[in-house]
Nucleic acid binder design. Structure first.
Lengths: 123, 123, 123, 123
DNA sequence: GTGGTCTAGACCACG
DNA sequence: GTGGTCTAGACCACG
């Protein structure tokens, strides 16, 4: 479920952070669902417990999860818009870069369709 | 010209790398233009020559610039298509991220129009 | 193991790069074997950690090794063909040079037999 | 005639050195032929006179050329074997590397034919 | 502990 | 003057 890439240059804790949000969006994780414990997940993934703990802390800071002391971590109620905001900040930036590079808005729109198509067939 | 953000978590050499490509895109730097020498740019930016040298080496490896020994570094001939490719790689990635976050392709297209509009008025 | 020649005009980081590939070819280093840490190898060789780091970065860029953040650097899976390719690029170049120098293909072939014979007796 | 590649990482003086020997082998330059003056060649190639001078010095040190003070530089009588020796030292080394990489002598011989063929069609 | 980035500076080959 | 290599060391993020 939380498959991560240890060889990636993206920090593991960041991958876990994004993966969790992705699982919520996909409906795999829902409001009030309990997350695996730090130690359990760390063991399963073969990573340092501190790394998992850091991801959970970041998720809690962003109000994506909440934790009850001694009981564990749970998915918060989170509006879709909040999640989307994150992705869109990066998106806007990449649009700006592409416009600067001389790509036209229409080319970008075609590109969206191409990527959407590709993701649908091989997600 | 090569304004960089020393506070950023993005490595200075990487900022210089991207900045150079951006300057080419904007037409500020053209084919065969000479870049400032490693030492001159380092002094101007207040960073270590090694840091600038690293950026130049990466740019040369990517064929964005070439250097003539003992003479300096110069902008290579880069096709517009190659320049666009640079920008589109980032764009595609951000599209993928947005789709994962549950943003629909149509929302992204609207977003492109919004950003385009904003850039046109305040570039 | 990683014996290098500090007097050589060949940069140390390049010697380390080639040496690593040579150790893989000889079977001394195999897939997933861990390399000594940057600091440990630097100390052992009496060179600066930055120099070793540069060699490792080049090796990683060439996919000869991979690194797991916070854990260290490891030998990638490289096919025998890939290893041979490395050696043959140099070989082709030396053949071209020899042809330019007026050596005939037959002379080169005889030379191969001579070297092979010599290596067999004193490897 | 002395076409060189300014962008190459091979020093210009070394390219000139090799080029001169190549021209002798091809018969373009023969015993007692006069070489262009340092200044003339430097101007023609658009390089620093010091660079040409260095190449000539190296050629003289290797007895490939001789110079008469005030008159210029001339091609020496040089045996083919002397020239070949240079190339063969590199060749032997590359053969050793290839053997270490597990390439068989027969594969190397086939490779020689392939390179010879390619050079013949596009030198 | 591990690699990544950076500084301040030196020395060198090449031109 | 120009870039390439290297040292000696610091600080940092990640794990």
């Amino acid at each position: 479920m939380f498959d991560i890439d240890l060889q990636s240059r993206v920090p593991i804790y960041e991958q876990l952070y994004k993966k969790t949000i992705e699982l919520i969006i996909k409906g795999v994780l829902s409001e009030n669902d309990q997350l695996p414990s730090v130690r359990a997940l760390a063991k399963e993934l073969g990573v340092n417990p501190n790394t998992v703990a850091k991801a959970y802390q970041e998720l809690e800071r962003s109000k994506v999860i909440y934790s009850l002391s001694g009981r564990g971590s749970f998915i918060s109620r989170i509006s879709d818009m909040e999640i989307k905001e994150y992705a869109l900040i990066d998106f806007d930036e990449s649009v700006r870069e592409a416009l600067k590079a001389g790509v036209t808005p229409d080319e970008l729109k075609n590109r969206i369709d191409a990527v959407t198509e590709k993701e649908r067939s091989a997600p």
